[in-house]
Design a protein around this nucleic acid. Structure first.
Length: 646
DNA sequence: ACTACGCCCCTTTTT
DNA sequence: GGGGCGTAGT
């Protein structure tokens, strides 16, 4: 059951219209959102007319399961809930065929196009252009072109701006041709579709973490134009400027809607008084948009707030690990929070020395490992047999086949298969003008009889022959778990996995370390097992593949102490929190600040978010030097603002 | 023109 | 341990 205080209740019961709830850290905004939805349902709004937009899919799930406990689950499931991206995708997949691609894959696509359009020494490199373009898509308004946007932002690049624009126009065409979509494309396409609807599909849209809304997301809300908006956010927790998040969207709410109502949640239920006082002391250095009065409700506890200082970063990691080893707090209720993900490795290693289990947001290393990427590419290919990038990536493992030859083979097979690469492999048909090649059309029992066979070298032929056998074997399987199992035991993947393991087990003198080889092979299969395990949650291949792109960094491996970047700690809370590596330059991170304006205030908000994750014990630490890198550090300015004497 | 390999860099934050 | 870049080899 929900226990709401007066302020929360007032917000929940607001009439339909444009309502903004200013909810500081720990004031029960989740309960308020759940309470609001409950109120809507009780008032007779149909579940399918409610849209709940959250910042992570996990947050959406949590709120939904709280609703399941209060209402008939089957009925409440009709509420549309998720991130902007997930909601967009769910709608689009019913109306258009598209393949969601990881940013890194699209970056590769852009890179392959780049030399044809840009050839200047001083021009931006494709990697950076990709980031820039993504930022443009997120923060430009009203159909402003990339050219104008860039010239305004970076006038010194005006000479190249036209080449950039041709590059991106080719990029967009290519994406359309292959049916690829990036994260931003989901929102852009969805916005188009929503604009075309005669009336809004939703009566009320609830937006969580409204302070991190960017202009693109805001325009999606505009396109949806619901009768009622219920936005919840906290100005002081806006930390996504790098993704185009614009604080003025929340700040201008009352000016943009004539019927705007603002509610305030001021009772903090999470943190102890010393923690709140410290957080408020620091955030007070930012310009106030609206007055903030946070009331402490947890007055009865023996809370600790302390700073630890070390000579070297590794001393710090070790000492923190030792403190955690001696702490009486459950591991799962402890978090180590840092500004830069690179910190995670150091602290993780130190914790391992003390045999303390830890979990970090697993995403990156897992999904970028060769074996997992290959398995997913293969599954992608089975799901969409004309996916050029997936095919070429897979072909990379054939010796002597790079992106050019891979592309050529793709085109050939596409032709033989009339738009389906797997068909081209299994049942090649030639066009009339190609019949000169003289081969049997129709099913080819083995690759030896395939028309491509003669033009390939021994190894690539063997490679494609294995793929042929696998494709034959899995034809018709729609279930992700079954497909993974078939792939894993195929000769095709078996041989590639051996090659990968072999490379990893090579010593400097090029000799093979047999022990390391076995170990590497075992690790590969362990990762595939994790993938297989994950796949069991999805009813078909498509859902699984989408989840791997949309939700890959929402899952974490293992259990124990939580290792989190500040960004990923948003919305979470822990009994005991360690905020580490608080050095000038690293946090605040001046390198990053140089790229955007108002950055110190943003870094200060990050500090505020980090500090307010703690319920009871809050520990800060910094190191005076990184000896092996020969860097001396000053303590973070935020430690001084917090009132520590150093 | 394309691919393979060895040496250097290094590591922002998220959907 | 990975990716970018330059060079050698097909």
């Amino acid at each position: 059951m929900l226990h709401l205080n007066e302020e929360q209740l007032l917000a929940c019961q607001a009439p339909l219209g444009h309502n903004l709830v200013i909810a500081s850290a720990g004031t029960g905004k989740t309960s308020t959102i759940v309470g609001r939805i409950a109120t809507l349902l009780e008032r007779g709004v149909a579940p399918s007319e409610i849209l709940l937009l959250t910042f992570t899919n996990k947050a959406a799930q949590q709120m939904m399961s709280r609703l399941f406990a209060m209402f008939d689950e089957k009925r409440v499931r009709k509420i549309e809930a998720g991130t902007f991206h997930a909601v967009s995708y769910r709608y689009l997949k019913a109306h258009a065929k598209l393949t969601l691609k990881q940013p890194r894959e699209l970056k590769m696509l852009l890179k392959s196009l780049y030399p044809r359009f840009v050839d200047y020494e001083q021009a931006y490199k494709p990697e950076y252009l990709f980031e820039l373009y993504s930022l443009y898509q997120n923060q430009s308004v009203d159909g402003e072109g990339f050219y104008e946007w860039l010239c305004k932002r970076n006038p010194e690049h005006e000479p190249y701006a036209l080449s950039y624009e041709s590059l991106f126009s080719a990029f967009e065409n290519l994406k359309n041709e292959y049916g690829y979509a990036g994260f931003n494309d989901l929102l852009l396409h969805y916005k188009q579709k929503m604009r075309a609807l005669p009336q809004s599909p939703y009566i009320e849209i609830l937006v969580d973490e409204y302070q991190d809304t960017n202009p693109l997301q805001d325009s999606v809300l505009c396109a949806l134009s619901p009768k009622s908006l219920f936005c919840v956010g906290d100005y002081d927790q806006s930390i996504y400027a790098f993704n185009g998040a614009d604080i003025s969207i929340i700040a201008s709410f009352k000016d943009r809607f004539a019927d705007a109502q603002i509610f305030n949640l001021s009772k903090n239920y999470r943190s102890s008084a010393p923690i709140l006082q410290l957080a408020n002391r620091v955030i007070a250095h930012n310009e106030r948009i609206y007055p903030k009065k946070l009331e402490v409700t947890k007055t009865q506890c023996n809370s600790q707030v302390r700073l630890f200082v070390y000579d070297d970063v590794f001393d710090q990691y070790r000492a923190i690990a030792e403190k955690i080893a001696q702490s009486g707090t459950q591991h799962a209720d402890i978090a180590v929070i840092f500004r830069n993900n690179s910190t995670a490795d150091g602290i993780e290693a130190a914790l391992r020395e003390y045999a303390i289990p830890s979990k970090k947001k697993g995403g990156v290393s897992f999904f970028e490992s060769k074996e997992v990427a290959l398995m997913l590419d293969l599954l992608t290919l089975f799901h969409n047999p004309k996916d050029m990038m997936a095919f070429v990536q897979v072909m990379h493992y054939a010796k002597g086949v790079g992106s050019a030859l891979g592309r050529e083979i793709y085109e050939e097979l596409l032709e033989y298969g009339q738009g389906d690469v797997l068909q081209g492999l299994l049942a090649p048909k030639a066009r009339r003008d190609r019949l000169a090649l003289e081969f049997e059309t129709g099913n080819v029992a083995s690759f030896a009889a395939h028309p491509l066979r003669q033009s390939l070298h021994e190894h690539s032929a063997h490679f494609l022959s294995n793929l042929h056998a696998l494709a034959l074997n899995v034809a018709g399987i729609r279930n992700a778990t079954a497909l993974i199992a078939q792939c894993e035991k195929s000769d095709f993947l078996g041989e590639i996995f051996q090659t990968i393991a072999h490379k990893r087990a090579l010593r400097k003198d090029m000799s093979l370390d047999k022990e390391r080889y076995d170990e590497a092979l075992e690790k590969i299969h362990a990762k595939i097992q994790i993938l297989s395990h994950l796949s069991k949650n999805y009813k078909d291949l498509e859902h699984f593949l989408i989840a791997m792109v949309l939700g890959s960094n929402e899952m974490n491996e293992g259990s124990g102490v939580n290792l989190l970047s500040i960004h990923s700690a948003k919305g979470l809370e822990y009994h005991e929190v360690y905020v580490i590596d608080l050095m000038e330059g690293r946090f605040p991170n001046y390198k990053l600040m140089a790229k955007s304006g108002g950055a110190l205030e943003e870094e200060r908000r990050l500090f505020y978010v980090a500090a307010t994750r703690a319920k009871e014990n809050l520990f800060f630490s910094f190191a005076r030097a990184h000896r092996s890198k020969q860097i001396d550090y000053e303590p973070s300015i935020f430690l001084k603002e917090a009132g520590f004497e150093i």
